[in-house]
Computed example of a mutant assay.
Amino acid sequence: MKFKPFAYLLSLVVVLLSLFYLLNNYATMTDYIWRLRVSKLTAYIVIVLAIVPSTFAFQTLFRSHYLSPNVLGMDAIFSLCQTLIFFIGSRFMNREVGTLTTSSFLINLVLMLFFSALLYIAVRPRQLRERFDESLLIMLGLILSQLIRSLTTFMQVIMDPSDYDALFSRLNPSFQRISTTLLIIGMVIVLIGLVILFKYSSVLDVIKVDHDTAASLGINIQKVTYQLIFIIVLMIGTSTAIVGPLTFLGFMIANITYQYTQISHHWQYFIIGSLLGLIMIIGGQWVNESLLNNHYNLSVIVDVAGALMFFTLLFKGGRAYQTQ
């Protein structure tokens, strides 16, 4: 199916699912439930628009459909920051830690940006003729992420059990806990990030073909990579702070888009992928709330499905490699 008819069809499905979600049990709906559903629906849109386009850009920069931006350690930084807040607040300040505040949200983003900047500085080419080593960046990200997780686990072990229970609920991704204040900040960040990603979509089209071709056309690969990593970290960090780390959502949507659509431009990937993500999240949450009575955590289902897709693609790739 061509891009425009397919995009219109997906948009219609998104609108219908949004109406089903908002108007479910309309006769018994109160003003509080209506406001809650509107805020949650807005959060779903912000999360999908933050994760899916940034995943497409990240996979193009690092030339692999198997990667997710979380390999840079965003979830590890989030866990460390939240653990520090609970650990310091309960152990040294003798006070309970409530919901995620704007200050802790901004601290999360600053730490994520600082961490990604350190990674980039560590592996950036020292001379102009050298190429950017993406594999070294990913390897460093994975190693440092494991170090951060070990430090986080150490602090969690010596925490008070009641504080750890509260922290555990904070660290697990959930589409039920939505902060209106963080949502407004997230909307601004994601909107700015989308504008920049769409601006760079034609550059990403060239980079996807070949880095040497992009360099011969005058594209500064190092500069573009650094700028886009900055935007990707901002967007992934925003979605992580709002609902928690969703490792496989962007990966799953991106690979579905690659395999079952016939499009080649990144701006088309951004639109189709975002619509597919909205259908998955809004539709899944509507089924969970209206038919399953919230007995299941949608984020867990998404991660399990994404992990199964990852191993399926890995297996197919290995079989294809053996038959060549």
Rank of each mutant, 00 (worst) to 15 (best):
L67H: 09
D133Y: 04
M112G: 08
M155I: 04
F87A: 00
T101Q: 09
D165V: 11
V188S: 10
I158D: 11
R63E: 08
F105D: 00
Q82P: 03
I143A: 12
E130R: 15
I138A: 02
A117F: 14
R95Y: 14
T180S: 14
I185C: 12
R126Y: 13
S116L: 10
M93K: 13
L136Y: 06
S145M: 02
S162A: 14
P69F: 05
V190D: 01
L113W: 08
I77F: 07
S145H: 00
M159F: 04
V71W: 00
F78T: 06
T153D: 13
D163W: 03
Q59I: 03
L118W: 09
F92C: 09
F62V: 02
V71D: 00
L136V: 06
F154I: 12
L113S: 10
F175C: 05
G193T: 03
A117H: 13
S150R: 11
A76I: 01
G73F: 06
T99P: 05
Q82Y: 05
F62I: 02
F92Q: 10
G193A: 04
T102Q: 12
R170A: 14
L144F: 10
D163V: 01
A122F: 12
G193C: 03
R126D: 15
Y164D: 02
Q176F: 05
V71L: 05
A76S: 08
Q59E: 04
F86K: 04
G98Q: 02
L72H: 01
R63F: 08
V97Q: 07
L61G: 07
S174Q: 01
A76Q: 03
L182T: 01
S135Y: 08
M74Y: 11
L171T: 01
L84C: 07
V195L: 13
A122M: 10
G98R: 00
L111S: 08
S104F: 01
A122I: 09
T102K: 14
P173G: 08
F86S: 01
L100C: 00
V110H: 08
T101N: 09
Q127T: 15
